[in-house]
Design a protein around this nucleic acid. Structure first.
Length: 493
DNA sequence: ATGTAC
């Protein structure tokens, strides 16, 4: 069965020349966009019919096809069920290029919030033991967690120390006493992405980064106190240390103004360099250069530095969450890190394509790495189970812990969240932040939010249904559900 | 996502 989706609505001139996209339903959980025009590989969209974006308001399916034209792309231009419209590449997209076949790297394939990601901390107490002190914990978090737009972080540092953060990531924070070695064992890449170069980051980006290390930010970023409501895989949950009723803290944040500036700077430089390599792309937001070019290497070095900033940021936020919990709960507020993983990153990884191991530049933009059991990059004490995959839902709704599946495809990737179904502007016009705040409180969720406007933009009605997204990911064989978590307290910018 | 335009 096929569905026809029109493309190019926002630019009438382009839409006339652009053929309609034809989606072929391969299974109820997987659709294909066949090669056409300059596409080098097909598009593959993991989604149920209900989760496919509506083409009238969202160009993301056209973006999946556009990405398939990139030099050196292998297998397919993939999209996850939380797919929606992004800058050049769709959010929820995965694309890998072969480095030794003139494969390119594109800042649009990572996005503006470089190394935005999620970590989950686990408390030793259950919901009942927290209940009568929840408001006190939330007050402490409100006091200690810097949040919202602009400056103000946990760790005020000078430029030499900032440069150490850009090279050393969460490890640089731990070396200054923020957390311990065990935290690093539970971070993707040990908390430190290799190949970072602070000298590849502009003075302007450094200036923006100086006062934001250890700050939540705004938009969909949050810190939530959550409770494990349901365990879906008992053996893996036990390995992860998760049981029904358990209190957890989920942190969703990124690289703040520094990462944003690195992306802005890089797009400008790469757009200018493209001509020299004779590259053309169907959308200027897909600006790209060969991985093995001076500009490509410079982008990856600056991106890694921003990624390390994001990792240090989440490490600092964990430290203040620990301070808040221990202030109110003492030793029973101890928070152990389960895992920290990014969902906006390009990484050099080796994967088998057409029977041969190849070095690939894997772009995951709003997509989470999901390594299977036994993979050497999974922490040793979790290796039997596989890599924890942390999937935040929209505000006030469930979040999930998943685990990577063997042979899942899409370069071991899965979804990153519920996925926007409505623009921020549309959400602001449809929802009252004040009313939403009252609804959350009435539903038993303690809210500490600095902006009603921010609340309105993050209304769950402007997101897809996280339960449907995660169910789709599991049915498509990309990852397996381990635990469903529900919020009892939310801290937002 | 973002000193929501240099």
């Amino acid at each position: 069965m096929a569905a026809v989706v029109r493309g190019g609505r926002s630019r009438p001139d382009a839409s006339a020349a652009r053929p309609a996209l034809r989606l072929v339903e391969e299974t109820p959980w997987r659709w294909r966009i066949d090669r056409a025009g300059d596409m080098k590989v097909p598009g593959v969209v993991f989604a149920s019919r209900d989760l496919l974006p509506e083409a009238a308001a969202d160009q993301s399916l056209q973006q999946v096809a556009n990405v398939a034209t990139l030099p050196g792309i292998v297998e397919a231009s993939y999209a996850m069920p939380d797919l929606h419209w992004g800058y050049g590449f769709p959010i929820g997209g995965v694309a890998a290029t072969e480095v030794d076949n003139d494969g390119v790297v594109s800042p649009g394939g990572v996005g503006f919030d470089i190394s935005c990601g999620v970590r989950l901390l686990i408390a030793p107490i259950d919901r009942g033991e927290l209940a009568f002190r929840l408001e006190m914990v939330m007050d402490a978090l409100e006091e200690l967690v810097p949040r919202g737009m602009g400056r103000g972080g946990v760790w005020e540092l000078g430029e030499p120390e900032l440069r150490r953060v850009l090279q050393g990531g969460a490890r640089a924070a731990v070396e200054r006493g923020y957390g311990d070695e065990r935290d690093l064992e539970r971070c993707e890449d040990g908390g430190l992405l290799e190949g970072a170069d602070a000298d590849a980051v502009s003075e302007r980006a450094l200036a923006r980064g100086l006062h934001q290390v250890g700050s939540l930010g705004s938009g969909n970023h949050f810190l939530e106190v959550q409770v494990v409501e349901e365990v879906l895989d008992a053996a893996v949950a036990a390995c992860f240390g998760l049981r029904v009723g358990q209190v957890c803290v989920m942190i969703h944040s990124g690289s703040r103004g520094l990462g944003h500036q690195v992306c802005t700077d890089s797009v400008a430089g790469i757009e200018a360099a493209m001509r020299r390599y004779g590259l053309s792309v169907p959308d200027r937001q897909l600006a790209c250069v060969p991985v093995r070019s001076p500009e490509g290497r410079a982008y990856l070095a600056a991106m890694a530095a921003a990624a390390n900033y994001g990792r240090a940021n989440r490490q600092l936020l964990s430290v203040v969450a620990r301070r808040a919990f221990s202030r109110v709960l003492g030793a029973s507020g101890r928070l152990e890190l389960l895992y920290d993983v990014s969902h906006n990153l390009a990484k050099l990884e080796t994967h088998v394509v057409d029977g041969r191991a190849r070095l690939l530049c894997v772009h995951r933009k709003g997509a989470t790495r999901a390594l299977p059991p036994g993979h050497r990059d999974v922490p040793a004490d979790l290796a039997e189970a596989g890599q924890p995959v942390l999937v935040p839902g929209s505000m006030g709704t469930a979040s999930y812990v998943l685990v990577g599946e063997p042979g899942a495809g899409a370069f071991a990737s899965t979804c990153h969240g519920a996925g926007r179904a409505m623009s921020r502007t549309a959400a602001r016009h449809q929802v009252s932040g004040a009313a939403l705040r009252r609804e959350l409180v009435a539903a038993g969720v303690a809210v500490r939010a600095s902006s009603n406007r921010g609340l309105a933009e993050e209304a769950p009605t402007s997101y897809k249904d996280i339960d449907a997204v995660v169910s789709c990911v599991e049915r498509a064989g990309l990852a397996r559900r381990v635990a469903r978590l529900v919020p009892v307290g939310v801290v937002k910018g």
